[in-house]
Computed example of a mutant assay.
Amino acid sequence: MPVDSEHLALYLSPGAIQTAQGNTRIRTLLGSCIAITLWHPGQRIGGMCHYLLARHPQDLGRRINEPLDARYAEDAMHLLVDALRHQGAFDPAVTEAKLFGGGCMLSPAHIPPGKPLHPLQLRNIEVARALLAHYQLPIRAEHVGGFGHRQVIFEIDTGHVWIKHTPL
């Protein structure tokens, strides 16, 4: 990815969402967390959520009057979709979805042979796919699972996403 000073660079913290338009790049760093990017090519508006856990610990019938919390998958996706809808940039027929993260942060040497990834990573990935299906958003690209962390950079004006995967 070329480095230039014409793009506004935003850092997305864990448990947050960000939307932007134009010459903007949103960047985040993932381990077992998940980032989902949504981009409307006609509007050239997009956003990213970075959630930590698939479910809120008090889920199923919880928090009727509590604010949504982007640390959790369903809340993060709801907040991201609502933010894009508010900007007139959410249409499942054209919105492009991409999915990243869910890496195991333990060294492969510390995991017994034949043991799958930790359920946390698997659950985060599974819930992300289910949420995208719920919103009728096909996954255009993904880089999930495995070992190590990923740096994700989402360029809003083009919809391109760059990944730097650092395996353990």
Score class of each variant (00 low, 15 high):
residue 1 M to C: 14
residue 4 D to K: 12
residue 7 H to Y: 10
residue 9 A to R: 06
residue 10 L to E: 09
residue 11 Y to V: 07
residue 12 L to W: 02
residue 17 I to D: 00
residue 17 I to W: 05
residue 18 Q to V: 08
residue 22 G to F: 00
residue 23 N to L: 07
residue 24 T to F: 02
residue 25 R to D: 15
residue 31 G to S: 09
residue 31 G to D: 06
residue 33 C to Q: 12
residue 36 I to L: 02
residue 43 Q to V: 05
residue 45 I to N: 11
residue 46 G to L: 10
residue 49 C to I: 00
residue 56 H to G: 07
residue 57 P to E: 03
residue 58 Q to N: 09
residue 60 L to I: 12
residue 63 R to E: 09
residue 66 E to P: 04
residue 67 P to G: 05
residue 68 L to S: 10
residue 69 D to Y: 13
residue 71 R to Q: 05
residue 74 E to W: 01
residue 74 E to V: 02
residue 79 L to N: 03
residue 87 Q to S: 09
residue 89 A to I: 01
residue 89 A to T: 04
residue 93 A to K: 09
residue 95 T to S: 15
residue 104 C to L: 14
residue 104 C to F: 12
residue 105 M to H: 11
residue 105 M to T: 06
residue 106 L to E: 10
residue 107 S to G: 07
residue 113 P to K: 08
residue 113 P to N: 09
residue 116 P to E: 01
residue 117 L to E: 13
residue 118 H to Q: 13
residue 118 H to S: 12
residue 120 L to Q: 10
residue 126 E to K: 14
residue 129 R to L: 12
residue 130 A to E: 15
residue 130 A to N: 13
residue 131 L to C: 03
residue 134 H to F: 14
residue 135 Y to M: 03
residue 137 L to Q: 07
residue 138 P to W: 09
residue 140 R to C: 08
residue 143 H to Y: 12
residue 146 G to M: 00
residue 149 H to V: 00
residue 156 I to K: 01
residue 156 I to Q: 02
residue 157 D to V: 08
residue 158 T to F: 08
residue 158 T to K: 03
residue 160 H to L: 11
residue 164 K to S: 14
residue 165 H to V: 10
residue 166 T to W: 10
residue 167 P to I: 11
residue 167 P to R: 14
